[in-house]
Nucleic acid binder design. Structure first.
Lengths: 144, 144
DNA sequence: GGCAGTCGCAACTCTAATTGTTACGACAGG
DNA sequence: CCTGTCGTAACAATTAGAGTTGCGACTGCC
């Protein structure tokens, strides 16, 4: 599983913007964030675009353009970020419909679906317990 | 996320073998299971091979060959299956190392790592609560 | 009004993982 | 020896994500 660093990069970007603003700057550019995350500015803009749609950040255009937080880091959780950047469910069903003439083939999808839903609900709960403020604090607490 | 139906297919196969054995048969072939799951027998053999390494199933070769359960369905949980068939962690880090000269780039990976570990631990707990016997019961309970 | 810096977005390539397919040797019972 | 099935390797097909390039849109400043 998981060739999927979207949540990590999104948290990185938010922590970076938050810290930068606390240092007195108004906006951060996708270029600066991309340098810190060691990736391409367009990748950052795409992710931040999804976060903007979710109401977590804002962007300005024109000269002195860039990104800023739409809310305090304390009020954002990893669940907000997860829902903004992760499209699909955690576990997938069969990619082709199983044999509906077989008892197992017929019943397996509803069975797994409801099991998976319960698990994803628990995952959401866990993600909701971590705020981006927590993340930034942990980041700054790393020993040098 | 998730172009990943391995856990689903593995659970399907185990439920199928379990039910087939309860109907009095000794072994199930990868061909039969593949028909029920609507996929290729080699895909099933590969998955069951991983489950065999984990001690969940056994295989016979020669004439009358096939697969059978190594333990009762009640004693297998989705966690056993998950660990047998899913290689990596749920969430990935950056694919390239972030800028170690930046405070955020330096601290983000340990921070996210420890958060993710806690979340995966919770996920494991949830998966361990569901036995394959539960799955088979749910499968058979599907309304026709 | 023109210039410069940055976002917005589309289109494309590159890479990696999973799945599907084909092929063939190994094995065991009749 | 023949047959059916596993074991496994090799390769193609599919998909998702990440990376790149290009260019129009926007806005503050000169």
């Amino acid at each position: 599983m998981s060739a999927n660093s979207r949540l990590t990069i999104a948290a990185h970007a938010l922590a970076w913007i938050g810290l930068y603003q606390r240092q007195g700057h108004e906006v951060a550019t996708s270029e600066q964030i991309a340098t810190s995350a060691n990736t391409n500015p367009v990748v950052i803009r795409r992710l931040l675009g999804e976060l903007r749609r979710a109401g977590l950040v804002e962007s300005r255009r024109g000269v002195g353009a860039g990104w800023s937080l739409a809310r305090e880091l304390e009020s954002m959780t990893l669940l907000d970020v997860y829902e903004a950047v992760e499209p699909g469910p955690l576990f997938a069903m069969h990619r082709t419909t199983p044999d509906q003439g077989c008892v197992v083939g017929y019943g397996i999808q509803p069975a797994m679906q409801s099991i998976y839903e319960g698990i994803e609900e628990t995952l959401r709960h866990e993600l909701a317990r971590v705020t981006l403020e927590n993340v930034l604090r942990d980041v700054l607490a790393a020993p040098r």
